[in-house]
Write a protein that binds this DNA or RNA. Structure first.
Lengths: 277, 277
DNA sequence: CCAAAAGTGTTCTAAATACACCCATGA
DNA sequence: TCATGGGTGTATTTAGAACACTTTTGG
């Protein structure tokens, strides 16, 4: 920043890309838009857009979030800067530097394409076909980051509606981590972390039919968990047992129809940085 | 990224800013350059510069790192993207979006201003006067991030020379965290974390005179620590005991001469995000 | 001999794990 | 009454904290 020459720089386009996640029906889903034009026409991409002249990247990201989800009040949603992607050829048309954000949504209303995107949809995070640009990598980075933050923050409640059961909260962890947790121990851990959750006095929710009604909780004031809630160490060989995604209830059907792109699951290199960033 | 209009964007300048840290004489120090021109003439700022047309931010950061430190081989050094700062008025002259990086150096040779900066210096991280632009905040963010990463990665060795003693490694933790650790427990923890360090067969170093010679270790292959090495929970009231920085040995004197800027320690809000990012 | 720093061992306690078991509801 | 999910209790194991003690050097 010294030796500053007003004319020594090359102009870049600066954009934001949003990896918006939700947990629905026991599946981690990400909001994607279908591209209408080249390059990558017909492929899925992350929502995003240009940073306007008087905006910060954070402001632009929240504006795009509102536009793409169609939600009127987007101010309470968790939005966090991930990192910036700046490879010179990541967009074949021109030099675009993109600041990526991760956002977490509770209930996942179907997106009402209020913004640029004609067709925006929730798609399960696993086994995505190749996405446009370097968005595979952004989604993988975002997933990894969120998984890591569940360990030492109280972020998981951002995936839940204002009032939720501990079973729902546990399912957030199991879905994002792809593991199964012991219910009694999970329960103890959450309840003994001061400020993680607080019980709603009156309520008890029927958990979709069967079973004992569950107590309702709200997010507490705490943002970090001391000591952390570590994910179970993967036992050497490979992926620790994945939870069964419950069969989609009728009417909540997780769209499993055609995806553009070849469908080869080239998501991104999962060997990068364990829990480093 | 849809509804892409080739002319709808405003050109931004994109720069990198580097927070380069080292631990010397038990003090965390950061590399700063003195600004020669307005704005902020005479104040300290982070080294950095423009991203060139065919560079990624990472490439630009490593180039700047080599230039500013004067080191010939900068390829092995730890360099990590922090976040991007994009407030519209962070630079009064024009719209500059800056990708910030944190770098860790072992021994801290005095910078040979090979780059832009005529006067580059190491200054202790604590009690910096106000820096130029939003660099106070960048330094604070970088410090916090590095402190957090010491917990669950093996990053601390990046502050050490190729061969080091466990005492030196412990001092890295104590310096960055500003706490005192129990030596036997620290030792056990490091040695039982597989791949954190490996002992150098032959050697034992005299630790600057007094005391029993210490065994030498090298960084092991591991990058993450399972389970993490958590910093002691700050006991409610305030800063947990800071270690005494040892009196600077003659000839290694930590420059304590005049600093520009008013000297009011307005570093940055330390209450932000405990170990969140 | 003493001070300083490295290195070892032991005890005590907190926390995570792995269960077994009971409760309330819908079908 | 059975399947399902919520909730409680308890034994076992593991990891962390605290601290006493020995060893090897320089002065």
């Amino acid at each position: 920043m010294d030796g500053y020459d007003m004319h020594a720089f090359e102009p870049f386009a600066v954009t934001v890309d949003l990896a918006v996640f939700t947990v629905r029906a026991g599946v981690l889903q990400v909001l994607l838009v279908e591209r209408g034009q080249e390059p990558y026409a017909g492929q899925w991409a992350l929502p995003g857009g240009f940073v306007l002249p008087r905006e910060s990247a954070e402001t632009a990201a929240r504006r795009e979030l509102a536009e793409e989800t169609g939600l009127s009040d987007v101010s309470g949603l968790h939005l966090e800067q991930l990192r910036t992607y700046s490879e010179p050829d990541r967009d074949p048309r021109m030099r675009v530097v993109s600041v990526a954000f991760a956002a977490l949504l509770p209930d996942a209303p179907e997106p009402t394409g209020g913004g640029d995107a004609a067709s925006a949809r929730w798609l399960p995070c696993e086994g995505l076909g190749p996405l446009a640009f370097d968005h595979d990598r952004i989604v993988a980075d975002a997933h990894e980051r969120i998984g890591a933050k569940l360990e030492y923050t109280c972020l998981a409640t951002a995936f839940c509606p204002p009032e939720f059961t501990l079973g729902e909260l546990q399912q957030v962890y199991e879905t994002v981590w792809g593991t199964v947790l012991d219910r009694p121990n999970f329960r103890r851990k959450v309840l003994t972390t001061p400020g993680f959750v607080e019980q709603v006095p009156g309520g008890a929710r029927l958990t979709g039919g069967r079973g004992k009604p569950a107590a309702l909780y709200r997010a507490g004031g705490a943002t970090t968990a001391h000591p952390p809630l570590l994910r179970p160490a993967a036992p050497a060989g490979g992926a620790g047992r994945a939870p069964d995604p419950p069969a989609p209830a009728a009417g909540t059907a997780t769209g499993s129809s055609a995806r553009p792109g070849s469908g080869s699951p080239t998501a991104a290199d999962p060997s990068r940085e364990g829990r480093s960033a």
